[in-house]
Write a protein that binds this DNA or RNA. Structure first.
Lengths: 302, 302
DNA sequence: GTTCTTCATGAGGTCTGTTCATGTACATCG
DNA sequence: CGATGTACATGAACAGACCTCATGAAGAAC
């Protein structure tokens, strides 16, 4: 029994039009074609779907059963086709984001809030788990955008620059390093360094400062959440290096001091990696625009 | 965009099989055919539904959207096809019953209770409204069975005899007619006759007794429910003529008297009208068997 | 009875979907 | 590094499904 959507459309049309001839017109085909089709369908079903006794042909009991299925299924198909039209028109789409830096939540959430209102039909999600390698996932279309500060673009992937930021030292006002104008690698020798629980090659403080200088902090401990790291720092349980945009609340707080890394200020650039074909999409362009401008406002507020 | 179920099956198969070649095997077709089909589908959709970069072909974001639709729709189709197989096998079907006599509820409910357990998959319903003519409705397949005591079979309709019954007079024990052994037309001249609210040609007391004898009762009032009629009779607000099977509770009650209509006992036959092609169906045969035997038990109990 | 409407049927043409044969791209392995 | 294997794409050719056209049959309306 090979039901096809064509059959369901036929059933529905005959019911709506109240007769085979009118239904044929609705479906832009000849009455003959419909008659043949109905006959074929009835052969498939192995029973009469229509009552021919009364002259304008009506659905039989079995036909009504099939009509019920048609009325559940066809709207779903129509909805899906509508979604695809919208998808083609660029009104909708998917934006699943993988982030490689924990601190990025801080600016990403406000950005997504703005985005969500402008593009309500876009399916937005953040994949924070990161059990996987982000860039291959991009290629596999498991995600559509990767926030990263490592710039190593494979073919087909575009790294869109977002904004520059300064990994910034933060410590308790009680900490001995509070007196210094800027912080250097050697200053960490006697400190407990608090970081996100990720590998060192994803932490600016290591990639930019400690690893090049071959300096090891006295100890390292980790915390998942930015707020927890700042709390630990505030109670002088350690020091941290975080992007400047997360400092905005801490800057005005007398318990903390923030200092640039030095002697030359370290500057890093944040990127949004996307598939090359996606950058032209309107919603993606809009997201990138927001992700360039909004975090800067947060940094200024800091 | 002409989506067909074939396409949804393809999407699902490729996802399940994890690749085009394996999916082709699942669907009993060549890898080539599937490749062409997928290409065609993507042309329809106007976008890539699969990611070809990673070697076993995977669904793209848009492809996942279509998969979701497939996973909602295909089970519905499968379920419907299963229903039709069952329908063909005779395990299921529809039994929508129209009744022309109010009192028939009395025996019909017990019968349907028995039937329902034997044929749980049959769609059972009773149409009591009767705004329509029952026999044409049978022809139009609006209903599948009509309970009637009028035997006038149009072509294609079969009247299956169920059982005989006696329209029986019932009155209060206080009523003057309680003394008589049987009740004749003239006896109604001084009585208030209580009937169901239907036309006289559907009421045995008129068709069998009063109309032939050209006798009019003193007054006629109506009540929808058998219980209400009996209550009115019990308080001597009138008399009634009802089929014998509804008398079983009344017979043992000293407040009531029941009497045959006479002098010759009136016997009527109850029929179940069905479409000719339906009588052979197993569930229909079973229903008819029940409708022949069960009411008789109720009559004996009376 | 005539006419109109509605559906059925058969023949023939078109076009879609399939297969077959082959090509391309990429990964694996000796 | 070429050989081999795997996975998908492509083009040509064929088959069959589906449609149209023309006509028939059977009710319904007048």
């Amino acid at each position: 029994m090979y039901i096809e959507l064509r059959h369901l459309r036929t059933i529905r049309a005959i019911q709506q039009a109240g007769g085979l001839a009118r239904a044929a017109e609705m479906l832009n085909m000849t009455q003959s074609a419909l008659s043949h089709q109905v006959k074929g369908l009835e052969d498939q079903a192995g029973m009469e779907l229509f009552v021919r006794r009364s002259k304008p042909m009506r659905l039989s009991a079995a036909g009504h059963r099939m009509l019920r299925a048609a009325e559940r299924i066809l709207p779903e198909i129509d909805a899906m086709e509508e979604e695809f039209r919208a998808l083609r028109a660029g009104r909708t789409g998917r934006l699943h984001i993988a982030i490689e830096c924990h601190a990025c939540f801080d600016w990403l959430f406000p950005v997504l809030e703005l985005f969500r209102h402008a593009w309500p039909e876009i399916d937005v999600d953040i994949k924070a788990g990161l059990a996987f390698e982000a860039l291959p996932a991009l290629n596999r279309e498991d995600v559509d955008l990767v926030i990263s500060s490592d710039r190593e673009p494979p073919p087909g992937i575009v790294f869109n620059p977002l904004f520059d930021y300064h990994p910034t030292f933060v410590a308790s006002a009680q900490n001995s390093l509070a007196e210094k104008a800027f912080i250097m690698a050697e200053d960490f020798k006697d400190q407990v360094l608090i970081t996100y629980p990720v590998s060192r090659d994803k932490l600016d403080i290591f990639t930019e400062i400690l690893t090049p200088a071959k300096v090891e902090p006295r100890a390292q401990r980790t915390a998942e959440l930015t707020a927890v790291i700042l709390m630990l720092v505030g109670s002088n349980r350690g020091v941290a290096v975080l992007p400047d945009w997360v400092m905005r609340e801490v800057k005005t707080n007398a318990d903390y001091v923030t200092r640039p890394l030095g002697p030359d200020t370290v500057t890093k650039r944040m990127y949004a990696a996307t598939r090359a074909e996606d950058v032209a999409k309107p919603y993606m362009a809009h997201f990138l625009r927001l992700a360039r401008s909004e975090p800067v406002k947060l940094q200024r507020g800091a």
